[in-house]
Write a protein that binds this DNA or RNA. Structure first.
Lengths: 216, 216
DNA sequence: AAATGTGAATTATTTCACAGCC
DNA sequence: GGCTGTGAAATAATTCACATTT
């Protein structure tokens, strides 16, 4: 196992591999090679091996990987063997869609509390989750052992909400608001910005085969 | 202007810059330097200049960039000066949240048609959009000049839907389903996978300060 | 024979650093 | 003096290629 810094893209792909072999395990397939796994995830075989290599040696030379073993190892590495509680802030269209998702089992990531600034929404129920005022975030974070948060509020409010989240002691934020959040060292933010994703596609649509080829 | 291949990450950041200077233009600010723009987007000044440099020379040495000019240039480069029509496939929780978003003006990207496989949903109205059967996708694509598509269906159906989209002549897909789509050369796919994003955060939560530092 | 694990080579991206201009 | 534009340097990520193991 190497001791080098693990690229974030590697982590992202490991979840992809895990997802894939979880499907394969269901249909009782026992082993897989790096090139098969690469094909299934649209990646190269060397990429698969290098990614796994950051964390240890999981394969058998000449034979590939045992799906059961690799699955267990990846779950351990990726923190899938523990349950992570999530706070959702913002219960507009997107927030409620996320709540509905979270309801669908299958995830080990559970939204356990929802918050909103809008007084009209406080007290609303989604399944067994009741919407609460943001002022209660800190209290609930302690009570429910919350470690992850989702920001699903309008752009103008996102920075303020982020600060409240951090004050409550949560250090990981999934931000759906289209703004660049400013957070202190040690706080981890990931952005999901689908209007930007769609815009990027429109760039490709606008530049199809005009010689400045960014497509690959 | 360089003639080198433009990294996709550059395109992504250009939209960030454009978003920022659009805000500044509103409050009547006239010029900005690369380092100010970098600060506002949490990027370095050299990164800003290099990104812009792929497309031309927009600044004035010693004085920075004219916001009005840069805004116009970026809109042109990024295809924001044209309107791009979008087809949405899948009108579950997520799909309807996206429809609601699209309704909110401000975007030049318009969902102009929505499709679903579920007979019970056909005919439903969201604002001025009526849900249609997927069999009509190709017809509507021609009629409404659709160039972009959004897949918001369950994972198991995503590949089939992608093939239908491509057959209809659409070459850009924003895929929300948690699967790796297989598409022919020339078709551009971007994936938005928020359960994976949340999982990645959980990895960081699981590995906070354990020596294998992937955080930066 | 097949397929891993991993250094080395390659390619891509970011950051530096500074000449040149306003 | 401040700031752009851009080669060069540094860093990061991917891909190659092969010795090694079963």
């Amino acid at each position: 196992m190497s001791n080098k810094k693990v690229p974030e893209s590697t982590i992202s792909r490991l979840f992809l591999y895990l997802r894939e072999i979880t499907e394969l395990a269901k249909i009782n397939i026992k082993t897989i090679s790096s090139s098969e796994l690469g094909d299934r995830t649209n990646l190269g075989d060397a990429q698969v091996r290098k990614d796994l290599g950051y964390f240890g040696q999981f394969g058998v030379t000449g034979a590939g990987y045992s799906i059961a073993d690799l699955k267990k190892s990846l779950e351990k590495i990726l923190g899938k063997d523990k349950k992570w509680n999530v706070a959702l802030i913002g219960t507009g269209h997107l927030g409620t869609a996320l709540l509905a998702y979270s309801g669908f089992g299958r995830h080990e990531l559970d939204i356990v509390a929802a918050f909103d600034a809008d007084a009209k929404k406080i007290g609303k129920k989604f399944g067994d989750i009741t919407v609460r005022p943001i002022s209660e975030l800190e209290k609930l974070t302690k009570e429910k052992n919350i470690t992850l948060s989702i920001i699903a509020v309008p752009a103008a409010e996102a920075q303020g909400v982020a600060e409240t989240i951090i004050k409550a002691g949560i250090e990981c934020i999934l931000n759906f608001a289209p703004v660049s959040l400013n957070v202190p060292e040690g706080v981890k933010v990931r952005n999901v910005d689908f209007s930007r994703e769609l815009e990027i596609l429109s760039y490709f649509a606008a530049n199809k085969g005009n010689g400045r080829e960014t497509l690959k």
